[in-house]
Amino acid sequence: MDLILFDADFHEIGPATLEIDVEVGDSSASNDFELSTVLSDFSGFYIPGTEVGGIVEYRASVSNKAVNTLKGWTWRGLLSQWIILPPSGSDYRIVSGEANAVIRRLLAECLGGFFSVPEEDSGLTIGSYQFKLYTSMLDGLMDMLSEHDYRLDIYAKKTEAGGRVQVCCRALPAKKLEGEYNNDLGLTLTFTNDQMGINHLICMGKGELQNRQKLDLYIGKNGRVTTTQYYTGLAERQAYYDYSSAESLAELRKSGNEKLKKLAGSKKLRIDAESVDLNVGDIVVGRYRETGLVVEAPISKKIYRISDGRMTIEYGVKEDT
């Protein structure tokens, strides 16, 4: 593992040994890094061939201490700080074409064209994709690709001797790994099946007494919010939600949906990977044979910790799967 420092013009300074924490992932991740070092004359770092790296944008030092605290965005973090805007005269940004070509067009407008996209065919054609209004470049690209079981791959490289460090983005098929609790495939899977949550939310909107708007929302068999009751009798768990300022039944339902999702039980999966390299956007399907529990969890973040020249990786998955 070679961790390389670079200057303000993205030219390499040389290798270094740093104590550093780096977190990358979707919008639930911090997508930043923090390190403490006596070094100060560098602008960023990277590990060739990986997305571990970023630009220093925060420095803190104390007059009687030699160690500086440095922070900054990772490459994925930079993408989270840029908004996809609709073209003039249009309500939405809609794209189509080969995935890498689409990414290339979008990133040409982002951060002065800082990111590069390799001239390679991803094997994916985007028919017609409409981005959410004012979504970030990171969320937009990840959402677009995940609809087709692809992921956003980011890596840094030096293009030539004396050249600048280049950060590349491309579309790659997401891996889907399946394992069981007994540590096959080099994965340790920890399952949580929480059924203690609320599955029936009684929502009350504007109005007085019996004339108030009323909406019953339920957790269905698949864990999604519905208006059809699934859990009954001893399995039913109720809660009351007062939203008297709701302007309409649609607003009451939208707010009630969000409230019930927070109160409901969930199935969760924690992943410890000893010998498998996973990436943000890859999917792990965990099966607990004794109980029949199946949890499908996309990798939402990777946390790299580098100490004494050794790197450890921790994976995070979406909280509700």
Score class of each variant (00 low, 15 high):
Q195N: 07
Q195G: 14
M196R: 15
G197P: 11
G197A: 07
I198G: 12
N199G: 12
N199C: 11
H200N: 12
H200F: 02
H200D: 13
L201E: 14
L201M: 13
I202A: 11
I202V: 14
I202D: 11
C203Y: 05
M204W: 02
G205E: 13
G205N: 10
G205H: 14
K206G: 15
K206F: 11
K206E: 11
K206M: 13
G207Y: 13
G207R: 14
G207S: 10
E208W: 13
E208A: 12
L209S: 12
L209P: 08
Q210L: 08
Q210G: 08
R212C: 14
R212I: 07
Q213A: 11
Q213I: 11
L215T: 14
L215W: 08
D216T: 05
L217Q: 07
Y218K: 08
Y218Q: 00
I219S: 02
G220R: 05
K221E: 13
K221F: 03
G223A: 00
R224H: 04
R224N: 11
R224G: 01
R224F: 02
V225I: 12
V225D: 06
V225F: 00
T226P: 12
T226C: 07
T226K: 01
T227F: 04
T228Y: 01
T228A: 01
T228K: 08
Q229I: 06
Y230L: 05
Y230C: 03
Y230R: 02
Y231M: 08
T232E: 01
T232V: 02
G233S: 00
G233A: 00
L234D: 10
L234T: 03
L234I: 02
A235C: 00
A235Y: 11
E236D: 05
E236W: 03
R237T: 02
R237A: 03
Q238V: 06
Y241S: 15
Y241M: 06
Y241T: 08
Y241E: 08
Y241P: 00
D242T: 10
S244N: 10
S245P: 03
S245W: 03
A246R: 10
A246Q: 07
A246C: 06
E247I: 01
E247P: 00
S248W: 10
S248P: 04
S248A: 06
S248Q: 10
S248E: 05
L249S: 05
L249T: 02
L249P: 04
A250H: 04
A250S: 13
A250G: 02
